[in-house]
Write a protein that binds this DNA or RNA. Structure first.
Length: 494
RNA sequence: GCCCCCAUCGUCUAGUGGCCCAGGACGCGGCCCUCUCAAGGCCAAAACAGGGAUUCGAAUUCCCUUGGGGGCACCA
């Protein structure tokens, strides 16, 4: 069915300047999927040449984020590989050599203009309503003069000698040919005065040296795509296949998520950061499933996918170029779906750390028993704490006012609790099969509704108005504790 | 300001000239189930941005307008 695709080499190349977010996660996911699908390689490369913006711990967060999502990479800074090193900060000389080669071939040149002059130049251009452009002062300096000035210790950068005339056409896999007038391009800086390469050079050199076949990245790179193609062509390299993914917009669909909005979002229990999502009780399965479908679709209308499903079904052809607003309620939906898809044991394992974090001591047997009745009713894993914390407490503390008893007096509630207590006492142990028929029979005779009777019992036994089913809960809690809690509630009412 | 990209229900999307008075999913509303809350089942409302052109025929092709997004650093 699927035509055989040659093995790809793809790279996820984040810069360690901030927290890993949904956009990165999706790019990495698609990289992983297409690599696995074609039997290719998924490499992680850290683009850390901007020391000013470097964020300590970002690389570790990236790696643990990838692993949490299940996106194991084949080559990377911590595991190495045949194309290393995988940190750009360890490849300075490689970029410099390449830049010099371009200079030697008259495809780049040394520029001695000071940042101050360039800033002023730009301001003047802006004032004259001209697009900001390098004015070409050093573009035609002779090699001799350049070398003399370098020798004299003059600060310099290396600029790309962008063609002044004609057009450049590059093919993006999702959008087709994109053509720009070369005169709208600039003589971009390739190497900074401190000798470090800029992204444009470093990424192209690395992609070539690392045999990258497909460059999958965000569409914020689209404007510099012609430059990148021109650089590849200047070196005489074959270009990779360019794939620019749509951007993610904030839920309203109006623009990208800002820092301030991310903070607001967190108050509602959502986040665009992978680390947060984990803490908020989302499963990696759901995040993967959800994010995969933001910009990609599968044609038979199925939407529930595991990572393995996606590896089988993913393709580059169904990618969608238009921007996508993030829909967190759909994440909730997928989270529920995947939670319910877990085995009871798996679910028990997953919620354990959340209880731990909340300071609630659990035991594996009970966890396994509550799993089936809990799985159906939590949206996020940490919901389990609120919903099922009472299973692990010695006693619960219902508030008198919390005991519902719609339209019932205190005396009536006490009556119900006392009767229930005596009924339950008659059993050797509480099981749903034994107890439920008896209790329902009591409801019949009592004149109260099932909602009234079970509602009071629920609060007495669980301390909550909302809980998993009453009888199942009582069976798990055990007769002794149940009776104790009912007695407690009676005392409270009296 | 200049350059580039995008445009189907509120949102994510299917749709590559006739199968579409547009299909699915989330959400929303209703009903069923029901000891609470969920889950599940069923039903409903909801979109081709506007204008031209091509064609026997356009959501699908082309042009313009409008709207939205991204980019214009010795950041990535």
């Amino acid at each position: 069915m699927d035509q055989k695709i040659a093995p790809v080499r793809v790279r996820f190349a984040p810069s360690p300047t901030g927290h890993m977010h949904l956009g990165s996660a999706r790019t990495a996911l698609y990289d992983y999927l297409i690599a696995k699908k074609t039997g290719g390689k998924f490499v992680l490369r850290i683009e850390d040449t901007d020391f000013k913006r470097y964020m300590p711990g970002a690389e570790e967060e990236l790696i643990s984020g990838l692993r949490w999502l299940g996106l194991e990479f084949d080559e990377g800074p911590d595991i190495g590989g045949p194309y290393g090193p995988y940190r750009q900060s360890e490849r300075k000389e490689i970029y410099l050599e390449h830049a010099r080669r371009l200079v030697a071939e008259d495809k780049a040149y040394y520029c001695f203009c000071t940042p101050e002059r360039l800033t002023k130049m730009r301001e003047d251009q802006q004032r004259r309503k001209e697009p900001p452009h390098y004015d070409g002062t050093c573009r035609n300096l002779s090699i001799d003069e350049s070398e003399r000035r370098i020798h004299d210790g003059e600060k310099h950068v290396i600029r790309f000698k962008t063609p002044k005339e004609g057009t450049t056409t590059v093919r993006d896999l999702l959008r087709g040919d994109i053509t720009v007038e070369n005169q709208t391009l600039d003589d971009y800086i390739l190497v900074k005065s401190d000798g470090w390469a800029l992204y444009h050079l470093a990424a192209m050199v690395d992609d070539h040296l690392m045999d990258i076949t497909h460059v999958i990245r965000g569409s914020e790179w689209l404007p510099s795509l012609p430059l990148h193609a021109l650089i590849c062509r200047a070196f005489g390299w074959q270009e990779p296949i360019w794939v620019h993914l749509s951007v993610f917009l904030k839920p309203s669909g109006k623009g990208k998520m800002s820092k301030r909005e991310s903070a607001d979002l967190l108050k509602d229990g959502y986040s665009i950061f992978i680390k947060d999502l984990q803490d908020l009780g989302y499963t990696p399965e759901a995040v993967v499933n959800w994010v995969a479908l933001m910009g990609w679709s599968y044609d038979d209308h199925t939407e529930f996918f595991t990572l393995d499903d996606l590896v089988k079904k993913f393709n580059l052809e169904h990618l969608n170029p238009s921007p996508a607003a993030i829909n967190f309620t759909k994440l909730d939906h997928f989270n529920g779906l995947h939670i319910r898809n877990f085995t009871d044991q798996e679910f028990a394992n997953r919620i354990t750390p959340y209880f731990l974090q909340a300071g609630i001591r659990t035991d594996p047997e009970t966890l396994l028993k509550i799993a089936p009745i809990l799985k159906e009713r939590v949206a996020t894993l940490d919901d389990a704490i609120e919903m099922a914390g009472f299973f692990f407490k010695d006693k619960v503390n219902p508030i008198a006012g919390e005991l519902p008893g719609k339209g019932m007096s205190n005396e009536q509630m006490i009556e119900v609790l006392k009767k229930s207590h005596s009924l339950l006492s008659g059993f050797e142990k509480i099981t749903v099969a034994d107890v439920e028929p008896v209790m329902r029979e009591y409801v019949e005779q009592s004149g109260f509704s099932a909602g009234q009777v079970f509602g009071i019992l629920r609060v007495a036994v669980t301390g909550q108005r909302i809980s998993p089913p009453l009888f199942e809960s009582m069976e798990i809690i055990g007769k002794e504790k149940v009776l104790e809690r009912i007695e407690n509630a009676i005392k409270l009412l009296e």
